[in-house]
Design a protein around this nucleic acid. Structure first.
Lengths: 320, 320
DNA sequence: CTGTTAGCGCTTTCAG
DNA sequence: CTGAAAGCGCTAACAG
């Protein structure tokens, strides 16, 4: 930058002003600077500016997911980027692999790079270590799962209502023996919510019998009073159920609704009915919450809950 | 950091040494510093260090994809992260949306944040603007598509061999009327390569008739001598073909092999035979190439080509 | 509208 | 082994 100033025959401040587009600068000088920049191949060091700038903003965000390679989180990433892009903000992204220690390393890593905010899919229980960062002005929003031990913004899917809707759909098609296949509802927020939705739908319909399977869904059909419908509460479980149904030739006899949409869900036979989450919307909303804090909002943690959508494709409309 | 030094009763240099784990420091002092850090909630500013550090490394990388939300790129991201993680390097990621201008904005954005290297899925034709950055010491590796107008490392899938293998597989099952469904082979590197693989397989088998469809695959079966097998050269096209085959009830009569694996490919009926790319491996290899430059390699651009794998699931083994 | 100057938080010689 | 001092590239008063 010193060199640019020398070549253009102006001062550092002028170069800085031109580079940052600060208004009061004579067009002729601006152009001289521009030529010098071009000639020298000057690359602005935004990081150095952050050090000195009044507000200290780095115009970067840190995203911590379970796994950046998982399509669901990738879609969230995309949503965040869409709004970050409009503000010239770039995003770090990393995977905690559901390991609290790894999650902490990662957050400290991006915090050390002075991100302006953090969007995080929580894996750990304890986030008290972040309160000092919040106090120091960095914004945090939790996504997919609510925060624990810290007051912060968060954005969730309506897991319970979505699961309930799925099961009600099955009931509306005459089913009474409806199985839940999915992760055990201990620990993981989304699993617990979806299981509650399942139970609530049954209870509201006066169905006393819960058929739950937290393990291999194949066992569901080993007994002598098998279910006539299955609600699978999670992506990978849905795939397992689907494969199992096909292997046993039950795909046209046993109704099935899955939580979360999947590519190809419309190409299986029958088409797979799902309750879809708006992953991109989750990301967008999280980014908006975060930027509203950067823009000055300082109130208590807000909670946004996004609706899910039932997509009928055939498997959920099989009657009992 | 000044405060930490004051509280611990040592100099800034000592705090710096402790924080960075530089060897020669007395254990007692180190502990005093540690306590002060804890007490004050001190957060190291790695960005400021980068400014002053001898090698100027930021321990961050920039990844530019077509779309961070696309599962294929997400998997690449994951692969990069796996190796970056072992070195304490974090990753920026952004989407060019196949727009050269947007791609350029993004690369300049991360370059201004002083990343140590760039991994990029090229969208533009001209990368001469990056030669000065390479000269200035930043490492660039291209992925999925080779670089143009610049000498740089790159890592690709063997698109041509993979496509050829797919079509040979179809030929081995007795097919002679084999259609290509996919993007037109102009412009996009991967499309051109896959199309060449298709043609090469036919030529090697002495099959003169090419049946190509760059648009709606439905039209393939409107004529009076329809193909008995289809090779679909790309993810979304594969889904279209699959759906079309099911709609017309042809899924057990027309053989089908797709390029790129898809979740649920094992759950359709018949299972979808695919040629799978190793997306995570692509990412890993790119990161290794990049780090080898950071570690001192200064030779010419290298080209790594990763093999694809044929996964038989039924649809590709239907005979003519 | 432009230049001068101080200093962001850190690492690194160089002396002790 | 530890401290003092210089300065990375930049922005922000402030004075002209």
């Amino acid at each position: 930058m010193k060199d640019v100033a020398a070549v253009a025959g102006v001062s550092l401040s002028t170069v800085s002003r031109v580079v940052n587009g600060s208004p009061p600068v004579a067009p002729e000088l601006a152009e001289k600077v521009g030529r010098a920049v071009e000639m020298l191949g000057y690359r602005h060091n935004h990081a150095a500016g952050t050090l000195r700038r009044a507000n200290g903003l780095s115009h970067s965000l840190g995203l911590i997911f379970d796994d950046v390679g998982n399509p669901f989180f990738a879609a969230i990433h995309r949503g965040v980027e869409e709004v970050a892009r409009t503000r010239g903000v770039v995003t770090f992204a990393g995977s905690s692999d559901s390991d609290p220690e790894r999650e902490r390393e990662l957050t400290e890593g991006v915090l050390a790079r002075r991100v302006d905010g953090l969007i995080l899919v929580p894996t750990a229980y304890d986030y008290t270590h972040l309160v000092r960062d919040v106090a120091a002005g960095i914004s945090i929003v939790f996504i997919d799962r609510p925060p624990r031990t810290i007051d912060a913004d968060c954005v969730l899917s309506d897991n319970r209502a979505g699961a309930r809707r799925a099961v009600e759909h099955l009931i509306a098609h005459g089913h009474r023996r409806i199985a839940y296949a999915g992760p055990a509802p201990n620990g993981l927020f989304t699993a617990a919510e979806r299981f509650e939705g399942y139970r609530a739908a049954l209870a509201a319909a006066g169905i006393g019998e819960e058929i739950v399977c937290f393990q291999d869904p194949g066992t569901l059909f080993d007994g002598d009073a098998p279910p006539t419908a299955v609600f699978s509460a999670q992506n990978l479980v849905t795939i397992d159920v689907l494969r199992m149904l096909h292997e046993r030739g039950l795909q046209h006899r046993v109704a099935h609704v899955g939580f979360d949409d999947i590519l190809l869900a419309g190409s299986v036979e029958p088409g797979l009915t799902v309750v879809a989450q708006d992953a991109i919307g989750l990301g967008r909303t999280a980014a908006e919450l975060l930027f509203s804090r950067l823009d000055g909002y300082t109130g208590a943690g807000r909670r946004e809950v996004l609706k899910t959508t039932l997509i009928e494709r055939g498997s959920g409309e099989l009657s009992a």
